[in-house]
Design a protein around this nucleic acid. Structure first.
Ligand SMILES: [Mn+2]
Ligand SMILES: [Mn+2]
Ligand SMILES: [Zn+2]
Ligand SMILES: [Zn+2]
Lengths: 138, 138
DNA sequence: GCCCGTAATTGGACTAAGTCCATTGTAGGA
DNA sequence: TCCTACAATGGACTTAGTCCAATTACGGGC
């Protein structure tokens, strides 16, 4: 994710220890953390980082298009660093684990004109739900 | 929606003015109100109804399977009385209007085994986003 | 129609998630 | 190194929702 930091510096982002730490926490695949989870992990690396800064930084990353907000559960928003490869989500109904998935086909094409109510439809979000192997075994 | 009230009485639901009013507020097509919106409309019909009762009643209707919770925006949950005909949602990105839609095809079938990570996938939720005709005209 | 036990309602306190803001600190260009 | 515009901070505030002990009332039995 240091290419992310590169890109952001190029966009005039002032580099701070706090922002670096938030970016580090968001590194990886299938990462979908809540703001508080990001904060907890960030504090482990930089104890004095504040909750407000985590919220600020996440908000900026979202408006820069570098991180996505996902609302797979009905509680806290989750932050998804996989913003450059379009994908959907598969959620375990028991433990909440979230995996990135890439379905075949184009779900947008499945919505006939007669079901568009005159809307200009530009985007679709798909959430699959089920039970993960770990929870199924238990 | 009085068939709903019938069904609930059959299930041993004690009928109260408050519950009747909440059911009335939820009557109609393309209804996706937040709990507070339900409360405001309910108060107009029965001024002394409390917020707690609205939350209680909505929660019961959800666990009875008569109403669905929808999380199309990242703020408050919305309550959807259209629980018996499976459908998805089309949301205006500007004004938040929500329409029920019935896409063709089966989105579940679009998720290949290789993208299931061993999950037992049982359900899929689709949210289309776009701009409604009213907002497009403005 | 009235009584009564049980279930439902109520208001307010409480929690969780998120926003806002005045103050203090600092990255990084001159 | 100095300066200042931008960023970080903590705490107050807001919003959505939950919880609870006390009160009220539905509706079955008489
Ligand atoms: Mn993702
Ligand atoms: Mn609906
Ligand atoms: Zn699981
Ligand atoms: Zn609109």
């Amino acid at each position: 994710m240091s290419d992310l930091l590169e890109r952001l510096r190029g966009r005039g982002w002032r580099m701070t220890a706090q922002r670096r730490v938030v970016a580090e926490v968001l590194d990886g695949d299938h990462v979908h953390l809540t703001a508080d989870e990001v904060h907890i992990r960030a504090v482990a690396k930089l104890p004095e980082i504040s909750r407000a800064t985590v919220y600020n930084t996440l908000g900026e990353l979202v408006s820069l298009g570098e991180v996505l907000e996902v609302a797979t559960d009905k509680r806290a928003k989750r932050y998804d660093p996989n913003a450059h490869r379009p994908h959907h989500h598969l959620v375990c109904a028991r433990c909440g684990t979230i995996r990135d998935v890439h379905p075949g086909g184009n779900p947008l094409a499945d919505l006939p004109d007669s079901e568009r109510f005159g809307f200009t439809v530009s985007d679709v979000e798909v959430t699959y739900r089920g039970v993960c192997p770990t929870c199924a075994a238990a």
